[in-house]
Amino acid sequence: MTDLPTTGAKKLGLVIDLDICVGCHACAVNCKEWNDGGHSAPLTDLDPYGKDVSGVWFNRVHSFEAGDHECGRTVHFPRSCLHCETPDCVTVCPTGASYKREEDGIVLVNPDTCIGCKLCSWACPYGAREFDEADGVMKKCTLCIDRIYNETLDEIDRVPACVSTCPVSARHFGDLGDPESKVSKLVAERGGYDLMPEMGYKPVNRYLPPRTPKRQGAAALKPSEQVEAKGFLAWLDRMLSR
């Protein structure tokens, strides 16, 4: 049923640290790699070697500039499904193919019952869903449901592919419904926030803001032009100025 489940205690999700993401796209590439053989496989690429390349990805890394001049920042911004608590992508689904799991809050699409009407992708403000033209069904991030519960993997690998591959540990996975979890503490400590809270979808995934630089303001960043020379340098300055 596309009715939302009564919210369970467990809310699995990601915490993404925008302060240290270097924009290398490794998370997006490993996501594509794993999920091309995972729950929603394949992640079709159309015309992959032609002129009009397009394909399904669950994770896209944008790069933004925030602020101007010396206070401006370049921020790399990975964007994927936020596994919202009240997602309209689930309730608009006419078939029940789009659903939110009661036990851990993961939002999934059943590829066997999806009719490919695309309405869920219209209902998602975040662009988390991409239609697979070849399969005729909607696809989205599964939070690597086939990794996180996979007992054939070593325990250390039972995290989403994007988290396991991040070379700077900018991505964290855990239970955001448990205030004592590592991810919840990280969010509390760093002021983690929701994207587009005004939409009212209550995203589970959180983003950690870039830290404020220690040196602030224009003065600190100007080259030092007027330095008084002393001793031997002062003598040299006098000689050369003749």
């Binding site: 924009g23 790069s63 933004f64 925030a66 602020g67 920042r73 994207l195 870039p210």
Partner: peptide, 16 residues
């Protein structure tokens, strides 16, 4: 959409 408004105006630098 990005939550970066506290830093300043947000502009796209590179598309994904």
């Amino acid at each position: 959409a990005t939550g970066l408004g506290s830093i300043g105006k947000v502009k796209m630098l590179d598309p994904p």
